[in-house]
């Protein structure tokens, strides 16, 4: 039996998407690229990085708002724009914030390059954890390790083991390392403070910068 579908407009095109799916899933199905940081297929969506925001409106006009495509379920009659000026502005600033706090995490540099960032106007830090929560969701949803969780809140939020000790339920499966974006160093290695990469956007440098020789930084995480 054919699953129930809804009709929506995605970047100007009228499409049919499966009811209960998210805008991100629908977009990927139709080949529209939306960058993500804290999303991984087969793990529940978190909606924490906000990079995948899209502009959502309604058929009859009226006000639009931004929401994360990874969590927003498709509804009949919505009008979605994945690259409107408002979205681009938001993503650029989010990229700037991300790369200012974690310049040595590859995905931060990737998003910055993708958004065409040329400079960072905030004092740079060097965090290695971007609080995407992928390790936590991997541990609890896929591996039943029940070992990782968030502790603290706000700027002092961190990923932690309960009482900073590894519980017995942790089987050292290394699933957390596998999904962690912070484990992937930027292509040419650790950066100088304030250094932005973006080499993959500069055609003349592209063939030389990526160690695997594939098409620039938009490889595994952000399929073209």
């Amino acid at each position: 039996m054919k699953p129930k579908t809804v009709n929506l407009t995605l970047d100007g095109a009228l499409i049919e998407a499966e009811k209960g799916s998210t805008i991100l899933q629908a977009a990927r199905q139709f080949g529209i690229h939306i960058p993500t940081v804290c999303y991984l297929e087969n793990l529940s969506p978190y909606g924490g990085c906000r990079v995948c925001v899209v502009e959502i409106g309604h058929n009859g006009g009226g006000k639009t708002f931004l929401d994360t495509s990874c969590t927003h379920e498709v509804r009949e009659g919505i009008v979605v724009q994945t690259k409107s000026p408002r979205v681009i502005r938001a993503r650029r600033m989010l990229a700037e914030l991300l790369v200012a706090s974690a310049p040595n995490v590859k995905i931060a540099q990737d998003i910055a390059a993708r958004m065409g960032l040329l400079r960072v106007r905030f004092p740079m830090e060097d965090q290695r954890c971007i609080l995407c929560g992928l390790c936590i969701r991997m541990c609890s949803e896929q591996m039943d390790g029940r070992a990782l969780g968030f502790a603290g809140r706000g700027v002092t939020k961190r990923v932690s083991l309960p009482f900073e000790t590894r519980p017995e339920t942790c089987r050292l499966c290394r699933g957390c390392d596998y999904v962690c974006p912070g484990m992937v160093a930027p292509c040419p290695g650790i950066k100088e403070p304030g250094e932005l990469c973006g080499r993959c956007t500069r055609l003349e440098e592209m063939p030389n910068c990526c160690p695997t020789g594939t098409f620039g930084c938009f490889c595994e995480r952000n399929p073209l």
């Binding site: 909606g47 990085c49 989010l94 700027v155």
Partner: peptide, 17 residues
């Protein structure tokens, strides 16, 4: 900033900046 839950990037980092 003190009271932010810290889940989303714009609030956590944005308010800090």
């Amino acid at each position: 900033q003190e009271e932010s839950c810290g889940k989303c990037l714009p609030c956590r980092e944005g308010l800090k900046r």
